[in-house]
Design a protein around this nucleic acid. Structure first.
Lengths: 192, 192, 192, 192
DNA sequence: CATGAATGAGAGTTCATTCAT
DNA sequence: CATGAATGAACTCTCATTCAT
């Protein structure tokens, strides 16, 4: 167990509060004062850790995206077959979104609103490279449809975000069997 | 050609300005005063047409959603086969999203952020009933996978929103062939 | 008697409050909220009349400088002899500084601190042109020393500001005879 | 060469930083944190040397004023004739203002704004006593006009401050001949 | 002596909303 | 119906000062 410095504890509390509150109300409807209160620090303290509100949310986004992709690719190895590799990655992504709903919700909102700076968004995209590489291999081996990565992503990965958002809105409850069904739909949509 | 009353012209200008500005900056970063300026009325006038800012955006959402679904189901008839019906609806939806990007973007943002009241969101969902009915028929006829409508929507319809958002962010350009490829992916993901 | 619009009354109250408070505490030590309170308006109202705090003080400076120079040159005509012209202008300036102490103090502070934008400062300088022209005439006629206008100003005009500041600090009381003595000193310092 | 204690070095760095920064931006626009950074100490350290920000600037003023007057009267002796004595003092003052512009600018700003406490200001004035004594002698000997010391100061000494401020604002460049011309103007304005 | 971290108080500014006209 | 003018409340952010180390 790593011992966190006091500083690091405060920073994490801030990141956590930001995610929670932005999830509930959106970026612009979340005042710095609320974030401070939830993290149990003075508003002024936030400015010791981040340049300003925009910088705060940018950094929270990039760090969360990094944690997400690290998690996603952890069990994956380039030795795996395309199908096996895709399944391993997909299941880890699903796992992350179900177990770390808060983080997943936050990332979804970042992807769909103009609240993150272009630079940070770009950085977030780069972390997905291994998946893009796998797809290329799949196309070469004629296992995956020869279509744009954006289409592959839209159909095989992004739907998970939609399902999580639905679940958080309370209109849909994701159960065990849904995961398998979703995986099938995902794979069916992109396999040749 | 329907002649619009002066009142109706102003109201439409307000709705239009709201969509444009919320698309560009998000709901909370869009001041009433800007909406008023763009619609060429006084801020005070907005309160003659809408109760307050939240009411304005709720109404804009519901009306846009209604226009969207009306468009989506216009060429569809219940006589059609399941596959044909799905294709007709899907293509109209795609058509709407490409031709009325502004409206589509606005709906996407509403779906993915906490900016719309729950009641209005619910109302928006109801308009999709014909599609849900079609899917039920498809399941009965063992043409469509016997899985939750939310999964069917997540995989066959929602990806279009993602692609439009990507296009608006400037990271992806939707071309003619993408539509057909997207339709194939959509259908592959839900067909039995 | 000119009837002022409500708007103009408020604007003048703001200008007045600004001068009073900046005189007492300096620009940066004078919060917008205090200016608003003294002018009996909401802080937000200030932003209907001025772009921001800097714009407010710039405009107050330029307008006050303009009033000052208008007053200074009112009795002067280019027909006058150099000596007579200088005396007329000098006495009007002295008159302004004594009768409109508040405005004079404000101008003095603006001249000696970096609180006014360069552009506005430049504009203020331009209003003094008639005096500069008079000096040129005086140099041509060998009545006034052939030295830089800055020196002429420093010795014949600026000392008045110093005396006013001293008086306001309570260390010196300007009496009738001082004016005449000061005029003599001023004229002695620049006449050939 | 006097060896300065570590303490004294730090104190001087603080005084120096204060002068530089207040010159550039004014007292209230200069944060303690910036002064600390420029002096290469922690903000907290300032409070070991000075009671608070106001005390800091007061002390800097008094010490600078003292240094100024010490310099001014260094070559002067009471044996000198009035005219010679005045010239000696005047030239030293001019010398100080030109060679130690930073200090001179700081003193000028202190004289013209409400940033220094009344007590400290009074103390600053006292240091000028030798000049006042000289003038008294000059009046007795009927060499200098029998007018208030404030007038004498306003016309013979203060204009130098104005010229330095103009130079620092970049609108005027003081050259060698200007000094002699200025001295003439100064003497002409007060001599009988 | 010296400090980095922390903060309460208050700065300038914006904005949804109201109201006299 | 429509408005321009006005504002209270709330926003982001800064800063003089303190205090545990």
């Amino acid at each position: 167990m790593i011992k966190l410095s006091k500083s690091e504890i405060k920073r994490r509390a801030l990141v956590d509060a930001t995610i929670t509150l932005v999830n509930n109300s959106g970026f612009h409807a979340t005042p710095i004062s609320k974030i401070a209160k939830m993290a149990d620090v003075s508003p002024a303290t936030i400015y010791l850790y981040f340049e300003n509100k925009q910088d705060l949310v940018n950094k929270v986004f990039v760090e969360t995206k990094q944690a997400f992709t690290t998690y996603a690719f952890e069990s994956y190895s380039e030795n795996m077959s395309v199908e096996q590799g895709f399944e391993v990655i997909w299941k880890r992504i699903a796992d992350f979104k179900i177990k770390q709903v808060k983080n997943a919700m936050f990332l979804a909102q970042c992807d769909n609103t103009p609240m993150i700076d272009e630079d940070s968004r770009q950085e977030g995209v780069r972390y997905l490279q291994p998946l893009v590489d796998l797809w290329q291999r799949g196309k070469d081996e004629q296992i995956i449809k020869p279509i744009s990565d954006y289409l592959l992503y839209a159909y095989s990965i992004n739907p998970l975000s939609f399902l999580i958002v639905m679940q958080e809105q309370g209109t849909f409850k994701i159960k065990e069997n849904h995961i398998e069904e979703a995986y099938q739909a995902a794979w069916d949509s992109i396999k040749l």
